[in-house]
Each structure stands twice: as structure tokens, then as C-alpha cells.
Design a binder for these strands. Structure first.
Length: 449
RNA sequence: UCCCGAGUAGCUCAGCUGGUUAGAGCACCUGACUGUUAAUCAGGGGGUCCACAGUUCAAGUCUGUGCUCGGGAGCCA
């Protein structure tokens, strides 16, 4: 038996039909109809319609029922009845009602609101059914991530958030003072540390928040987001791709299994998710470029501050949103694009032995404009080649001594990838903006609430 | 950072080629109703028209600058 308060939850009402119960929660909506008051109560697990009929309660209780406002907190006692007319399916014939607190002028009305207003009231917006459902799916996605790795021989190895240098040397980082040691930066990836972990424990994953100070303001970017990064010793790119597919399939199927109700609230077309089963699609970068050329998809580049369309798409350029979305329209499942040009990818990616112009990298793009869900690669395990890349990118060699040590002492082929939690939640829920996929989003120009 | 758009009631918005007293729906308050589903009906209160400067007899409306917000691009997960 639990040692803490054990009270009736709305999601468990089906077990107690005919019984008198006491619910505790908040008023989601309220309608008066003369001698009848309908109160929609929510307690975090569901909603239940509480019916207060004047002839069934004391005058005092009925007056209380008329006084309550949206989001007031209550405890309600009554007999449970299944009723098709009730949202949630169950109704409470109220015999007693206690007001815990009357909410005055709750800002979020039953009508529509603009995004700016809702973001300013994010702490209250979380109470609405859509946001509630998205957060439940997010929790399920995270549970699926942990179950998947914990159940297949991986060890969780968390990487530091404060780091002494740029991981990939490209992104803009958040900088902070670090005692007498100069500057520290908020981590933008745990991968390099995960590699050390993989050489100690074989198969590891790191899971935590990640920070990017880039000035990106789109509906698929956050400045603070959660990323899970598995790293596997003795995995080559093929193994890496196989794992990425198994992983994404597992997450989607787990959410389908455990979040039916939430997906229904979100009006998500679940047939599209049911279809997310292996095998996914795969294509090399070079073949993808051929497809872009064949379909006359150009690249738009800024030359002298002017947008210029270049066609045919030149081999060697990275894909942007236009190319990704056009390319993915042909697929109903994720597609992995692999073997990207060396120049557009990070220094630690392993060069393909038969063609040094490309690296053993993979990006998994999601269908339905989900964008890039996963980025990963086989890592460069050759000491000389890695050092050469560090020098070519003008990275501070001293800072990477420990990383080079991994190639000095028992280097082995290894691979890994990173999956963005919020991007995955956005895809699965069909949320229109990534800021809805994390409780308190951090974006350029927004750090409140 | 660049490009585009928007700031008018607590919220969502309308407000014409500048014209005298500023509009609607919702929310809120009062009243009516035993079955409401964003209830409905009747009545009521509610405004620094983002800020500053300018043009004009006259600015919510036109011009400039700034601020805030939204959408897109690049970068990425």
C-alpha cells in the first residue's frame, strides 16, 4: 500500500461505477442551466462531468457550484455513472462539493488564442487538453528511448553539460565564466564523451539537454533541446543504420501502444504511424542528388545578397529544407540518406575507404515534413586521419588530446547517432511547432516563463 | 543574421481613398432555464488604437525610427 494519499483518479472511474467517490481537481469548463450545473473536472489523468442538481444537494453546495470559475480547484463527491453524453464518458451525480480555491479571471479562455499570448502563459497553457496530450506522448517517447537501450545491453553514460570547447567546432555556443579556468560552454552534443564511454563499456547512450546558441527561429529549432546519443564499439555504418531503424520503429510503436487516447485528442492519423515499420528507405547522398537533378529541384544560394537558383543541383552541396521536403514527399516512412560529401560534415566522421570524397554519415529524415530526426556516423578511428581533420578545421589540438587518446590506445571501429527528442515528438504528435513539444521551450527571444 | 507580415477592450479580430461619439464575437458581472458539450437568450461594465517624432485644418488610418510578436531562410537534432 502506498504511504501517500491515495484518492480516486478520473482515469480509473470505470472500476467504480455505482460507487460514491471523491475527486480532486480543477474546473476545466462549467455550464449553468437553471437548477442544473455541469462542471467538467480535470485531475491530470482525465476529465469527468460532474452534475450538480439543486434538489440533490444543500442550498449551500448549489450556491458554491454556481460560484466556481474556470480552473478553480475543487473536491467533488458523488456517485459515478457511465453516460454517453458526458465528455470523458463518466458522470458524477454530485452530493457534496468543496471549493479549495476560486480562480479569478483565468487568462486562457475557451476561445482561440494567438501563439504569442499562449507562449506568455505557457505555465497555464500546459493545462489544456492538446498540450497535456503532447506532454504525455513526450513522456512515452522518453520511456521508449530508455527501455529500448536498457533492454538491449546499453549502459547509460551521461556526458557533461559544461564543456571546455566546441564539440564540432562549428555551432555557436553559450558561453559562461568558469572559475579561474576561463570560459566554459554549454554542451551542444555529448557524442565525443559517449565515444570514451563506448570504449569503456561497449555500448552506451547519453541522454540529456543540449544547447545551441544559433540565431535560428523556425518551428523545428529550440535553443535548449533533449537529445539521446547511442555510441557503439565495433559498429560500422551498416550496423548504425540498422540500429537507428529499429530504434525509431520501437519508439513509434510504443507510443501507438500506450498513447491511443492522447493521439485521438491530437487528431493524429494513426494509420500513418502504424505504417512505421522496418524496412525504411535508404539512399546514398549521390543517388539523392541524382533524384533532385531528375526532378529539377534547384538549390537557392545567396550571392551578393541576392537569392540565386542554381540548377541542376550541384554534387557537394548540403541539403536544405527545400530539398529535404521535396525529396521526402515520395516516402511514407523515414528515409536514411548516407555517405555525404566530406566537406559538409563534421571532422570526426570516418572517410569512406573506397571514396575519400564521402564520409560514413547518415541522416534520417522523417515523412510528413518531420525533417531531420537523426544525424549520425561511423567515427574516424584512425589516429593520423583524425589529427589531419582536426588541423584542417583549425581546431585547438590540445583540447582534443583526450579524444585522440581514444585512437592511441586500442582504437576500434565505432559508430553512433543522435536523435532529437522534440523533433520526434513533433512528428509523432503532428504538433505544428516544436515549442509545443517541450514543457518550457527556450528559444531566441524567449526565456519566460 | 537576412527577407516578409502584424501590433486597436482580458482574448481573437474588423475599422474603406485620413473626417468629428471606437466596433463585433468571446471572456467577466446581473438575470432566465433539468441535459449542457466552446450551451443559449436578455442586460451591463470595460480602450494610453505599441512608443516617439513628423505630414495635415484633422491621424487608429499616411511617413520615418525604435520596440515587441508571428512566418520563412540559413544552421542543425
Amino acid at each position: 500500500m502506498s504511504r501517500y494519499k491515495d484518492y480516486q483518479l478520473i482515469e480509473k472511474l470505470s472500476n467504480v461505477v455505482g460507487n460514491e467517490v471523491t475527486l480532486r481537481g480543477w474546473v476545466y469548463n462549467q455550464r449553468g442551466k437553471g437548477k442544473l450545473q455541469f462542471i467538467i473536472l480535470r485531475d491530470g489523468t482525465g476529465i469527468a462531468q460532474c452534475v450538480v442538481f439543486r434538489d440533490n444537494v444543500t442550498e449551500e453546495v448549489f450556491e458554491s457550484a454556481k460560484r466556481i470559475t474556470q480552473e478553480s480547484s475543487l473536491s467533488v463527491t458523488g456517485v459515478v455513472r457511465a453516460d454517453e453524453r458526458a465528455p470523458g464518458g463518466f458522470e458524477i451525480d454530485v452530493t457534496d462539493l468543496k471549493i479549495i480555491q476560486i480562480a479569478q479571471d483565468y487568462p486562457i479562455a475557451k476561445k482561440e488564442h494567438g501563439d504569442a499570448f499562449l507562449m506568455k502563459h505557457r505555465h497555464l497553457w500546459l493545462r489544456s487538453s492538446r498540450q497535456h496530450a503532447i506532454l504525455r506522448v513526450r513522456a512515452a517517447v522518453i520511456k521508449a528511448i530508455r527501455d529500448f537501450f536498457d533492454g538491449s545491453g546499453f549502459t547509460l553514460v551521461d556526458s557533461p553539460i559544461l564543456t571546455p570547447n566546441a564539440c564540432e567546432g562549428t555551432s555557436t555556443l553559450f558561453e559562461t565564466k568558469y572559475f579561474d579556468l576561463g570560459s566554459a560552454y554549454l554542451s551542444q552534443s555529448g557524442q565525443l564523451y559517449a565515444e570514451a564511454g563506448a570504449f569503456a563499456l561497449g555500448r552506451v547512450y547519453t541522454f540529456g539537454p543540449t544547447f545551441r546558441a544559433e540565431l535560428s527561429s523556425t518551428r523545428k529549432h529550440l535553443t535548449e533541446f533533449w537529445m539521446v546519443e547511442p555510441e557503439m564499439a565495433f559498429f560500422d555504418l551498416e550496423d548504425d543504420m540498422d540500429l537507428a531503424e529499429d530504434f525509431v520503429e520501437y519508439i513509434v510503436q510504443y507510443v501507438l501502444k500506450t498513447c491511443r487516447k492522447e493521439l485521438e485528442i491530437l487528431e493524429r492519423d494513426t494509420t500513418k504511424l502504424e505504417n512505421i515499420k522496418r524496412p525504411f528507405y535508404r539512399m546514398s547522398y549521390t543517388d539523392a542528388v541524382d533524384w533532385l537533378v531528375k526532378n529539377d529541384i534547384p538549390i537557392i544560394k545567396k550571392i551578393d545578397n541576392q537569392d540565386v537558383e542554381i540548377r541542376p543541383f550541384p554534387w557537394g552541396e548540403d541539403f536544405g529544407t527545400v530539398q529535404e521536403e521535396a525529396f521526402m514527399e515520395q516516402f511514407d516512412k523515414p528515409c536514411i540518406i548516407h555517405h555525404y560529401p566530406t566537406e559538409v560534415k563534421a571532422f570526426y566522421m570516418k572517410r569512406d575507404e573506397s571514396n575519400p570524397k564521402v564520409v560514413c554519415a547518415l541522416d534520417m529524415l522523417g515523412p510528413e515534413k518531420a525533417g531531420e530526426l537523426i544525424g549520425g556516423s561511423q567515427r574516424e578511428d584512425n589516429f593520423d586521419l583524425l589529427l589531419e581533420r582536426i588541423k584542417a578545421e583549425n581546431l585547438p589540438e590540445e583540447a582534443f588530446e583526450w579524444y585522440l587518446d581514444l585512437r592511441r590506445y586500442g582504437s576500434v571501429p565505432h559508430s553512433g547517432f543522435g536523435l532529437g527528442v522534440e523533433r520526434t515528438v513533433k512528428w509523432i504528435t503532428g504538433a505544428k511547432h516544436i515549442r509545443e513539444c517541450i514543457p518550457m521551450p527556450r528559444m531566441i527571444d524567449r526565456i519566460y516563463p
